[in-house]
Simulated assay, not measured.
Amino acid sequence: MQRTPGLEIIPLIGLPEFTPDHSLATEIVRSLVGIAVDDGDVLAVTSKVVSKVEGCFVPASERAELIERDTVRVVARMRGPNASAIVENRLGVVAAAAGVDASNVAGDWVLALPEDPDASARRLANELRDALGIDLGIVITDTVGRPWRYGQTDIAIGSANVALYADERGGKDTAGKPLTVTQRCVADEIAAASDLVKGKTAGIPVALVRGLGEYVVPGTDQRARHINRDLELDLFSLGTQEAFEEGYRSALAAVAAGKVLDPRAE
């Protein structure tokens, strides 16, 4: 694919505080009045407003039970008071507290992530096509940390009509050297870029991204869930302390089974 020469990211202003009584598509259409929008544009939508519209509220008193329900496996446990665990959640995303969040949620409630963000994205794309007569790309975003870097960024947890990757493998770089690894995750790049005009404190949950028409593919079967690396291919599937503990347990089991000598007996 040829690189896009320019990119424009426009925050959608005036969206309401979403509840299950709102139609996300209807409110987005209202906020687009006066903004030129066309086939090939992308909407980056914060997962929190999708959760609110879909009614994913849980009493704050049940937060621990919700995290446990949505946890597939524990990757690492954070240390210190009120620390939570880094886990793989039911969507395959590795995140603190399974993605359960209380920020920007009124009252004594917390929000779970949408049940199926890819399905939510597809539904929103279809509703916007019916309302506007155009095919928009949809990326549903959520905020996560990175294991080797400070700070957080947004990633794609749901998508529709968007090619997830720009696969440059098999091509050559500007020096004529073969590219064997480069596979840019366009969906995550859209999510991260859009958060520059959205964010938790701005009250702007949706951004329009222009200039990426080459990556908007109506009807594509690519889904953001496919971005998650399979566990058997994950070289960093456990935290440091958890890896030590698992290794120790495995060694004790091997000693008990007589497969290795017990070094403590020397």
Rank of each mutant, 00 (worst) to 15 (best):
R3N: 13
T4V: 09
T4G: 06
G6F: 03
L7C: 05
I9K: 02
I10T: 14
I13G: 00
E17Q: 10
E17S: 12
P20G: 02
S23H: 09
L24E: 02
R30N: 13
L32T: 02
L32M: 11
L32A: 06
L32I: 01
L32S: 05
G34A: 11
A36F: 02
D38A: 15
G40L: 13
D41L: 07
V42A: 09
V42S: 08
L43A: 04
T46A: 07
T46N: 10
V49W: 00
V49I: 10
S51M: 09
S51W: 07
K52Q: 15
V53L: 07
V53I: 12
E54C: 08
A60G: 12
E62Y: 05
A64I: 09
I67D: 02
E68H: 12
E68Q: 14
R69L: 15
R73E: 14
A76Y: 00
R79H: 11
N82V: 07
N82S: 13
S84I: 07
V87N: 00
V87H: 05
E88N: 08
V94K: 15
V94L: 04
A96E: 13
A97T: 10
A97I: 01
A98C: 04
A98F: 08
A98K: 11
V100N: 04
A106T: 04
A106Y: 03
D108Y: 04
L111Q: 07
A112F: 04
E115Q: 12
A121V: 03
R122G: 00
A125E: 08
L128E: 10
L128R: 09
L132G: 10
I138G: 06
G145S: 15
R146N: 07
R146W: 10
R146E: 12
R146F: 12
P147G: 10
W148I: 06
R149A: 14
Y150I: 00
G158M: 04
G158S: 06
A163F: 00
E168W: 09
G170A: 12
T174D: 08
K177T: 05
P178H: 09
Q183C: 13
V186C: 04
A187I: 06
D188A: 04
D195S: 15
V197T: 10
G199F: 04
T201Y: 12
P205Y: 00
A207N: 06
Y215V: 05
V216A: 10
R225I: 10
H226K: 12
D230S: 09
L231D: 13
L233I: 02
L233W: 07
L238E: 08
T240Q: 13
E245T: 09
Y248L: 14
L252S: 08
A253T: 02
L261D: 14
D262Y: 04
D262R: 08
R264D: 14
